[in-house]
Design a protein around this nucleic acid. Sequence first.
DNA 1: GTAATAAAAGTATTTAAATACTTTTATTTA
DNA 2: TAAATAAAAGTATTTAAATACTTTTATTAC
Lengths: 143, 143
Amino acid sequence: MLSVTCKAAIKAVIYLGSMFKSGEKFGIREIADQIDENEHTVGKLLQKLAKAGLICSAKGPNGGFYIIENQMKLPILAIVEAIDGTDVFNQCGLGLHKCSAAHPCPIHNDFKSVREGFRMLCSEKTIEDLCLPVNSGIAYLIS
Amino acid sequence: MLSVTCKAAIKAVIYLGSMFKSGEKFGIREIADQIDENEHTVGKLLQKLAKAGLICSAKGPNGGFYIIENQMKLPILAIVEAIDGTDVFNQCGLGLHKCSAAHPCPIHNDFKSVREGFRMLCSEKTIEDLCLPVNSGIAYLIS
DNA sequence: GTAATAAAAGTATTTAAATACTTTTATTTA
DNA sequence: TAAATAAAAGTATTTAAATACTTTTATTAC
Ligand code: FES
Ligand code: FES
């Protein structure tokens, strides 16, 4: 569904969100540890997210990545778009070059429903929403 | 969602199904052409499907791949399982090693619904079902 | 039985994602 | 201002999927 990098990105941002109240900044190493993902992958992806304005970064001593109130309100759709792009929400389930109702593949209607369900999930859930269960200990970012 | 190979497999089997009545057998080259997929990929995948009993094959002159009545009744789930396995129906949406309600990720419930929707699609639609719209010209296997 | 045909099988190459490494730049603190 | 810190950026390697090539085996037709 999503790339390894994109799933790591969502977990990284939720981690930052769950630490939002502390006001702290977090280094690449620490974030990678907390979400059990590859350090280098996480480094690259955090830079992309910062450049896209989805998280904030600060260089130098006491620097690191952090998230601000406005960013907490963003849907995870924003993260998916920044990392994987919008293909996942538009691609044909059987690999036709273009998904369209005018020239559909045999599973078009049913697949479109599934795909729209996933898009809905991504556009309705905000970082803030997903931090709640993590903060209250009923959902986890690591296995 | 599914690998390129798996999507090609579904299209290949639907193509064979749509030609079922003719009683003909079809070569790798012809099938690959008809579904606009790589010839080598199609060759490999047809062998796997034949070995799994999802389609039939015959060597020699006038040989090729074909499908029989019983096989037309199979859900496309059988194809997905033969090519990609069952991971797609069990994996965590955020990449945790194991998806479980006891140790869920923050999107577990919603993602599980989406995933179940896709499984439902795959287990309810049979080859036969998906051949109908192709035969009546309202769905297509190529762009 | 020989030749032709087409799948089966095994191996090799290509490509893109993921992961790893290195250098540079900005910021803070002393 | 100098040293330390940590992100930013660029490059390289690894890995797995996809694609390409080659050889073998089974079947048919003559
Ligand atoms: S055309 Fe295949 S999903 Fe829309
Ligand atoms: S634990 Fe993530 S989808 Fe179930």
